[in-house]
């Protein structure tokens, strides 16, 4: 029985539903879209126009053949700046969620494996934290210090780890109740070691879904905070900063200054969410053929 369960678990892990994911039309579309965006923002700035070249002759120009997305109030090419901005925004998003994964993972482990009173206390704290609106929390963190990329990532992580903690805790507790863990504890092998060996396989899939979706939300949060001047320092282009500095131009008619950076965010988040949906659906036992 215990042997069955552990092999079952690790088989599930190895068979992470890549195939199903690629068959999922939307997820495939999302994956491709994201890939294109990532490649463009990594390599684009090397080949295209100089994102920092100001030019008094081309201030606030509408999109055209030479400037696909138009130019900003200093005459810089917005297409190049959106690509460059994507670099930073995606970096911040991924980095923040990695920190959140570690934070949430540790919190969930302690809560899930610790004594009942501690678990109760920690869950109470988690619920309370969840009742604080994310923007409020993040702004408080950001407003108490100088803006910076690292600080922003940490701030986003600090408001994003709760989902991970929940999943890890639940899985830990479920795992601790299974026969084979109980049996191995009874026979004297370390619970922690067991958890390390069996937790990851069980948890990989739901965790992946949550982390994927969180990256999308982190992108939105980055944009929001930077837009409010509480995120990335204003001189570094990120999608949020582009929107923040484009706002004034847009209010006097230069709509392209806010349309394109915003569309970039929406596309990236949609792509990420589609991948998340694909991961979730691939794990759904109710998934069906179409008749």
């Amino acid at each position: 029985m215990s042997e069955d369960l552990s092999t079952w678990a690790s088989r599930e892990y190895r068979a992470l539903p890549w195939v199903a994911l690629l068959q999922h039309r939307l997820a495939f579309f999302g994956l491709m879209l994201l890939l294109v965006m990532v490649l463009l923002s990594i390599f684009g700035p090397w080949f295209g126009q100089d994102p920092d070249a100001a030019d008094a002759a081309t201030i606030d120009q509408a999109p055209s053949g030479t400037h696909l997305f138009g130019t900003d109030h200093l005459g810089r090419d917005l297409f190049a700046r959106v690509l460059l901005g994507g670099r930073l925004s995606m970096q911040v998003g991924v980095f923040a969620i990695l920190i959140a994964a570690v934070l949430g993972g540790l919190y969930g482990l302690v809560s899930g494996l610790g004594p009942r009173w501690l678990d109760h206390l920690m869950m109470q704290l988690l619920d309370t934290l969840l009742s604080i609106p994310v923007i409020l929390f993040a702004v408080l963190i950001q407003a108490t210090g100088e803006p910076g990329v690292l600080r922003l990532s940490i701030a986003i992580a600090l408001v994003s780890w709760m989902g991970v903690a929940r999943i890890v805790r639940t899985e830990c507790q479920q795992l601790m109740r299974t026969d084979f863990v109980l049996a191995s504890i009874a026979s004297g092998s370390g619970a922690l070691q067991l958890v390390a060996r069996h937790l990851l396989p069980n948890i990989a899939r739901p965790l992946l879904v949550v982390l994927t979706v969180s990256i999308g939300q982190a992108l939105i949060l980055e944009a929001t905070l930077s837009f409010l001047n509480l995120g990335v320092p204003a001189n570094i282009p990120s999608w949020g900063n582009l929107l923040g500095s484009g706002m004034r131009a847009a209010l006097s008619g230069a709509w392209w200054a806010v349309l394109f950076p915003g569309l970039a965010i929406v596309l990236a988040v949609v792509a990420i969410n589609f991948i998340g949906d694909g991961l979730r659906d691939a794990a759904d036992p109710r998934r069906r053929l179409r008749l």
Binding site: V258, I265, V269
Partner: peptide, 23 residues
């Protein structure tokens, strides 16, 4: 629903202003 989840509120606000107020 999927789209709604992916649009930053402040950006949609800006776009609506650009279209309905400025434009």
């Amino acid at each position: 629903a999927a789209l709604s989840f992916a649009v930053p509120p402040f950006w949609l606000g800006l776009m609506l202003i650009v279209v309905f107020s400025v434009g």
